[in-house]
């Protein structure tokens, strides 16, 4: 299933946040949305999954989601959004419970999702007992349990420390290699975008517009931090981002 955004725009209190965003996310690719803070990239992601109503434009799905998909457009949030009164397994089961699944099928999906992120041994733990990385892996397992057609990831690694972030990037690369999931990955971090994006969509600061779309041909599992194959793309993206960030730094924050 592909996800198509056409002419998306948004404004808060007369201030244009997003302007004329058109974008197609093809099945099996990871699109990184990169932009400075306040450029509206999280707003854009909320529109893509129907959590926010765009002022202009539309979002459409093309083709059918996989038959086993319970929730075609599924989010992974920056703050994990785990329910603190449920265990790891309980959190993963939460979005399955309102669907007509047999108890066996539900248990199978939970176990499989936890195994995929390596949390099988922590099924009975509560979120407060987990490290940040384990919390986000729980949230990723929860997302995989509903077999999404498109994963919408909102700065999923921003709340984590650098080492955990690297480990999770490797996890995501491995998961993509295994399952070829489709994702929109919002980040303000160039290194993350370059490691995980098949295409990197660079957004300008307010109002957020698409400045450039950089394709990176290097296969995900062959990409390494600082590898020369990524050099050209990284340079190009850095140049685009640097100008935006510097300009944003000289600007007063609105609201």
């Amino acid at each position: 299933m592909d996800l198509i955004a056409t002419g998306l725009g948004h404004a808060y209190d007369g201030l244009t946040v997003l302007d004329d965003i058109s974008l197609t996310v093809a099945s099996g690719e990871i699109v990184a949305l990169l932009g400075p803070s306040g450029c509206g990239k999280s707003t854009l992601l909320r529109m893509l999954g129907g959590l926010e109503r765009p002022a202009t434009g539309r979002v459409e799905m093309r083709g059918a989601p996989p038959a086993a998909s319970l929730n075609p457009l599924t989010y992974v949030f920056q703050d994990f959004a785990l329910v603190p009164w449920r265990t790891v397994a309980g959190n993963v089961a939460l979005p399955l419970e309102h669907h007509r699944l047999g108890a066996d099928e539900r248990a199978r999906r939970v176990a499989e999702a936890l195994a995929r992120v390596g949390l099988s041994d922590f099924a009975g733990a509560y979120p407060r007992q987990l490290s940040g990385g384990m919390k986000q892996r729980t949230a990723i397992a929860r997302a995989f349990a509903v077999e999404p057609a498109v994963l919408l990831m909102d700065e999923p690694l921003s709340a984590l420390d650098a080492q955990t972030r690297d480990l999770l990037i490797e996890d995501l690369v491995r998961l993509w290699t295994e399952t070829r999931f489709t994702a929109v990955y919002v980040t303000h971090n160039v290194a993350e975008a370059v490691r995980l994006g098949h295409r990197v969509v660079v957004l300008s600061r307010r109002p957020g517009r698409i400045r450039a779309i950089v394709e990176i041909a290097e296969p995900l599992d062959r990409r390494r931090e600082g590898s020369p194959a990524l050099g050209a793309a990284r340079e190009q993206i850095w140049d685009l981002v640097r100008g935006e960030a510097a300009a944003a730094d000289r600007e007063m924050v609105h609201g």
């Binding site: 999954g49 959004a81 979005p95």
Partner: peptide, 16 residues
């Protein structure tokens, strides 16, 4: 409210 949005994003019905 983030938990409520999360629940909505998974298509959970209002009652749930």
């Amino acid at each position: 409210r983030n938990l409520v949005r999360m629940a909505q994003s998974f298509g959970m019905p209002t009652r749930a």
